[in-house]
Design a protein around this nucleic acid. Structure first.
Ligand SMILES: NC(=O)c1ccc[n+]([C@@H]2O[C@H](COP(=O)([O-])OP(=O)(O)OC[C@H]3O[C@@H](n4cnc5c(N)ncnc54)[C@H](O)[C@@H]3O)[C@@H](O)[C@H]2O)c1
Ligand SMILES: NC(=O)c1ccc[n+]([C@@H]2O[C@H](COP(=O)([O-])OP(=O)(O)OC[C@H]3O[C@@H](n4cnc5c(N)ncnc54)[C@H](O)[C@@H]3O)[C@@H](O)[C@H]2O)c1
Lengths: 208, 208
DNA sequence: TTATTATTGTGAAAAATAGAACAATATGAT
DNA sequence: ATCATATTGTTCTATTTTTCACAATAATAA
């Protein structure tokens, strides 16, 4: 089993680059084209493919369409993923209004909030009461949730949705959540992203 | 020079955990407490500290206050960082309204948009015209920008701000930007984050 | 004071990841 | 039909990152 997160991120990048190349009319691609496109080495591209049993043609490179098919299958993109958002505040609303996920086969189907003032059943993405979340998850077979509630509420919200059948959570609250058995929690911590950027800005500055 | 991004992210996590412990009244901490708090191993905590010349006391652990001082200094948190946001749309507005950055010494001082309808000089965080961005960066000594414009506009916006003196960019547009010499661009790609989550959900499901 | 214990700091080992090298081979040229 | 060339697939090598292990030593107890 591949546990290398960076490797999987590269697969996503290859896939995105391939769509761009395809849109430009290209039919085949070489490992060094892909390396250029995502900022890696040709050797790593081939190694990544080799790990997943993807092969091309000696001297002929890779057929973009069949390569995309394989990558999409590995990345689970051969099906639509329904996602819910917990917390319809600033971040939650921005995500619910974002139309860019659809083209990736990711559809935000509903938001949930504890504040009655946030509830709106007639939105393009309806915002429902948190009390309905359990039954919504079960009856719609939802497996993925984005957590965008205040820090203080994040753990209890995570517990609630995981016990309702959610298998993967993308958490925006800047704290480490205890994850329930069988549920993966990934974090998007923007404070830390900025701190990281600042660190590397400072060291490159000093080195120069 | 340390180029290990994960290591720097861990330093941020240690720092955050230390503030929580401090708030709970703790004065000293051991490597295994920190390991528990951030989800790592005690020896990695000590190794991370050792890399940066941070030392504690044999049998006595680490003094939280002096440890925080050192981590904060490494992470550049002994000064306020002024940040601008380019693109006052969904994501940009959410970030500008977010009050959680202040406690991290990160202050969003202005937003910029190309759409006159988005301009609002009386907001708590004013939204100005993109035409003003160059002079704003120079006269306020801004070094960091968050890029939250549509994909199609991202490269030209990045070029503009980097040539105006920005040294670090946190980019939300889901594409790889060519970075100008002397300017670091880090990406927050939520599509890829979700894809990654889906991949690992699927493999753990299959393995189980 | 001396012994015991807990914890650090770090060098060495192991594991994971990336990169280089090159044989194998398909393609296109002559 | 043969040769030259370009590109893959994979093995081998190098680098990076993590973990282990334990001597050094400070704190505490006897
Ligand atoms: N807004 C940002 O730019 C930003 C940046 C970084 C991190 N974050 C983090 O993202 C999270 C959300 O931030 P935000 O700015 O959107 O906050 P927000 O206050 O705007 O929105 C939070 C929403 O969650 C709802 N809520 C509270 N408890 C709930 C519960 N138990 N179940 C469901 N809904 C609940 C609130 O009613 C509110 O609508 C926070 O943890 C914050 O730290 C936000
Ligand atoms: N909203 C989300 O949840 C989300 C999620 C993932 C990625 N993103 C990415 O973040 C970026 C912004 O998304 P959004 O939803 O906030 O878009 P948006 O359309 O709501 O906002 C973009 C803003 O940028 C402004 N703009 C356009 N060109 C500009 C320029 N050259 N300079 C300055 N401002 C300019 C527009 O006027 C608009 O106000 C996009 O690249 C998007 O793909 C957004």
């Amino acid at each position: 089993m591949i546990t290398n997160k960076n490797c999987i991120i590269r697969l996503s990048r290859y896939k995105n680059a391939l769509y761009r190349l395809q849109a430009l009319g290209f039919v085949k691609v070489f490992s060094d084209n892909l390396a250029d496109a995502v900022g890696g080495t040709a050797s790593q591209v081939r190694k990544d493919f080799s790990i997943f049993g993807i092969s091309g043609n000696k001297k002929g490179g890779y057929q973009i369409d069949s390569l995309l098919e394989k990558l999409n299958s590995i990345l689970g993109k051969d099906q639509l993923h329904k996602v819910i958002v917990i917390g319809a505040g600033h971040i939650g609303s921005a995500l619910m209004r974002y139309r860019g996920f659809e083209k990736e086969g990711i559809r935000i189907v509903a938001g949930f909030d504890i504040d009655p003032a946030k509830i709106n059943r007639s939105n393009p993405v309806p915002v429902l009461s948190l009390e309905e979340v359990k039954s919504f998850i079960k009856s719609n077979g939802i497996r993925i949730a984005i957590l965008a509630v205040p820090d203080i509420a994040a753990q209890s919200a995570a517990d609630l949705i995981c016990s309702s059948g959610i298998k993967g959570v993308l958490n925006f609250a800047p704290l480490r959540l205890k994850n329930a058995e069988g549920c993966i929690i990934n974090n998007v911590n923007l404070e830390i992203e900025l701190e990281n950027l600042i660190y590397f800005m400072n060291v490159t500055e000093k080195t120069k």
